[in-house]
C-alpha cells in the first residue's frame, strides 16, 4: 500500500534534487560578490527553509492533535519535528562552512538568520528528551503537542527578535531570497532545489512513518503470539490445551 506511492516520491525526489544540483553547478552563474562558494546557497538555504517549514508544520499537526486527539496527527507532528532536527544539523554545518568561506569564521553572530536558526534548533533538541521522559503514551502525545504548538509559534517570533537585535552587517545572498532580487538563472536551480528538498522531506517522513507503523504492527503481533503461546502452554495453563479437553 505504501510502497507504490513511496517509490514514485523517492524517484521524483532523486530526479529533482539531482537536477537542481547539476543546474546549480553548471547553469547558474558565478556570483560576483562571493565567487564560487556562493554555490553552497543551493543546498543550505532550501534545507533551512524546509527545516523551518517542518517545525511550523509539526506545530500545526500538534494543534490538530489537541483538537481531534487523532494519533495520526501526533505521529505526523513527531515525524516532522524529527526530520527537521536532522535537516537542522545539515543547515548548521553547511552554514558554518559557508560562513567560513565567505567571512573567514565558522559562526557569524551578526548574521541574524543563522543565529535564529541556532536558537530554534536548540529548542527543538529537547523535543525527543521530553517525549522520552513521559511514560504514559496518551500524556506523552498531549504534552509533546503542547510543546510543538508553542515552539511552532516561537519560530517566527524568534526571527523578528533576532533581526531587531542587530543592524544588518552582511546583507548578502540570504536577503535576496526573500526580496526576489535573485537573477533568473539563479532562481531556477534554487526553486528546483527547494522543491527537491521538500520532496526529500516528504519522502523521508513517509519512510519514517511507515517504519513506525510497521514496528507497531510487529509489536502487536508479538503480543498476540505471546498470548496464544500462553494459552497453549501446557505447563502454564493445562486445562486450556486442546488435547486434555477432548479427553474430558
Amino acid at each position: 500500500m505504501y510502497s507504490a506511492k513511496l517509490r514514485t516520491l523517492a524517484l521524483a525526489t532523486v530526479i529533482t534534487l539531482t537536477g537542481a544540483f547539476v543546474l546549480a553547478a553548471y547553469y547558474a552563474p558565478i556570483e560576483a560578490d562571493q565567487g564560487f562558494s556562493q554555490k553552497i546557497f543551493y543546498v543550505h538555504v532550501p534545507m533551512a527553509i524546509v527545516a523551518l517549514g517542518g517545525f511550523v508544520w509539526g506545530g500545526i499537526q500538534g494543534l490538530l492533535y489537541l483538537r481531534t486527539r487523532d494519533p495520526k496527527h501526533d505521529m505526523r507532528s513527531y515525524v516532522a519535528i524529527h526530520m527537521s532536527v536532522i535537516l537542522g544539523i545539515g543547515v548548521l554545518v553547511t552554514g558554518g562552512i559557508w560562513a567560513r568561506s565567505a567571512w573567514g569564521v565558522w559562526f557569524e553572530w551578526r548574521e541574524a538568520t543563522l543565529v535564529s536558526f541556532l536558537i530554534v534548533f536548540l529548542l527543538y533538541c529537547t523535543y525527543q528528551p521530553l517525549r522520552f521522559s513521559i511514560t504514559d503514551p496518551e500524556k506523552q502525545s498531549r504534552y509533546a503537542a503542547v510543546f510543538a504548538v508553542t515552539a511552532g509559534t516561537f519560530v517566527p517570533l524568534n526571527f523578528i527578535a533576532v533581526r531587531l537585535a542587530n543592524p544588518f552587517i552582511h546583507p548578502r545572498v540570504l536577503n535576496n531570497t526573500t526580496g526576489g532580487a535573485l537573477p533568473t538563472d539563479m532562481k531556477i536551480p534554487f526553486y528546483l532545489a527547494l522543491i527537491g528538498m521538500t520532496l526529500l522531506f516528504v519522502t523521508l517522513s513517509r519512510v519514517e512513518m511507515t517504519h513506525k507503523l510497521t514496528r507497531g504492527r510487529v509489536r502487536g503481533l508479538e503480543r498476540r503470539l505471546e498470548r496464544l503461546q500462553g494459552e497453549s502452554d501446557p505447563a502454564g495453563l493445562p486445562a486450556r490445551s486442546a488435547a486434555p479437553q477432548v479427553m474430558a
Partner: peptide, 17 residues
C-alpha cells in the same frame, strides 16, 4: 533537567530585548 533546556531557548528573545 528538562525545564531550563526548554525554557531558556524560548526566552532568548526576551533576553535580547
Amino acid at each position: 533537567l528538562i525545564l531550563p533546556l526548554m525554557a531558556l531557548p524560548l526566552l532568548v528573545p526576551v533576553v535580547i530585548m
